[in-house]
Design a protein around this nucleic acid. Structure first.
Lengths: 247, 247
DNA sequence: TTTAGAGGATTACGTAAGGTAAGAGTCAAC
DNA sequence: GTTGACTCTTACCTTACGTAATCCTCTAAA
């Protein structure tokens, strides 16, 4: 059983933070008769889990919800956290590369497009939300889809229909060129649709990355190709063209 | 000249954020007659600089102060930012390694000490302050040394004296064993001194890392060895022993 | 020329994750 | 039995925006 100071020393987080986690019910240790907090080994391990999620910038509320899930699986969570951290590391590498380019740019050794100047600097913290929801399948993570939740059922219908409509339109065009005007118009609709309804802003770069995912992630490919074989591939091409043309 | 939306799309930050940066005077673009914000190329480049610092978790106030320095050198800043980002990346790698170990631990394939469980998870955001102050040499960054500033001159004297006292004590011991009781007591004083006066909490791990820096960073080595040749090396050893013994 | 719709502005209140300070109880050691 | 280190609670403060409401402006189509 450890007192607050010992835990703080061990982990590097502040005593106030431990108080706060207790206050919000995220980590509530046992207390002595005189009211001192006493952290057990289990508490320490839970704290470790909390800090892993924090390293991924998960809000404490979500962390709490995830850890409270009756079917929470620690091993699964660890693998998930590792994957996301690797991604985060890769984003840092992108930023570092951007800095390298900027250094050359400042020296006059090369030029950069405006987009290139901001590669990797997109901090939108919603990054892991969709994925996290799948993994930990809870309703608590739904904060980002408040926008969707706030819609009434009629509006949702309309939304769903335009969703299908866009996919079907694209499916019809998929044997033509992804750069054709019609295809690009449809993709533009898709881009706008996402930005207006998903509750998350896609930069052009992110949008292009999304297209890439359509063929790299089987789940996406399958779902999309239900509208027509090869649609996922077609969309990736079209989205890439769109992103490049609108730079 | 770009409007807010275009800048937001380009960078992935929100319009509200642009408004806010204008409000606090961090990035104030020109305005049209009708009050629309108009971002020039220079503004865009400044924004890029801001985002680089933000990627290092610098508070906006500090960013503002740094960019306002009349002798601000962009190239120097870029090199600095790159170094820090590499460090940040390395911390992420440490966390990833910790997760790997934890996975084995959960599976029962290995055990971990409490310290090992939290390697890399120290989020203390003061990480770059001392360095940053040297680099960008301004008074504005001094928020972390409020503690020192709040002291009156008599107290500062006392502080300085105990600082020297500890170093001198260690210098005398430096020909003996770093693990000796006296040496360890002196190091313990040093650890306490740092934690009470530097305004930054050192975990044992960080403390050990500090010792490592004493010999890896020439500036430290030089300064310390003025108290006695080989003192830096001796302190590193003693600090490592101290950290390990107190786990 | 009007008018719709997209985009822009300001004002103001809300939020997350703690920091910081004040006042008071507790524990170990001398 | 006092001191010094540690702990507690309460309460107000802070940063960096999000969100909402209300109003203005610009462009393109009718």
């Amino acid at each position: 059983m450890k007192h607050v100071k010992e835990v703080a020393n061990l982990t590097g987080i502040s005593i106030r933070t431990l108080h706060y986690y207790d206050e919000i019910g995220l980590l509530s240790p046992a207390t002595s008769k005189t009211g001192y907090r006493l952290y057990s080994n289990d508490d320490i391990e839970k704290l470790q889990q909390i800090l892993f999620f924090k390293a991924l910038d998960f809000p404490l509320k979500k962390i709490k919800n995830i850890l409270e899930q009756p079917d929470f699986n620690q091993l699964e969570a660890l693998h998930y956290q590792k994957e996301r951290l690797v991604e985060k590391k890769e984003r840092l590498e992108t930023i570092i590369a951007t800095i390298d380019q900027t250094i050359q740019n400042v020296k006059g050794e090369r030029t950069m497009t405006d987009q290139e100047k901001f590669k990797g600097l997109d901090f939108s913290q919603n990054q892991y939300e969709q994925e996290a929801r799948k993994k930990f399948g809870d309703e608590a993570i739904n904060q980002s889809s408040q926008k969707l939740n706030r819609l009434n059922s009629v509006e949702k219908d309309v939304l769903e229909q335009s969703f299908h409509a866009i996919y079907q339109k694209l499916a019809k065009l998929r044997h033509g060129s992804p750069a054709s005007e019609e295809a690009q118009n449809a993709i533009h609709e898709w881009y706008d649709f996402l930005n207006n309804n998903v509750g998350y802003h896609y930069t052009l770069e992110a949008f292009q990355g999304l297209g890439q995912m359509y063929i790299e992630d089987e789940r996406f490919t399958k779902n999309i190709d239900r509208y027509g074989e090869g649609l996922a591939l077609f969309m990736r091409e079209a989205m890439a063209v769109y992103a490049n043309q609108n730079k």
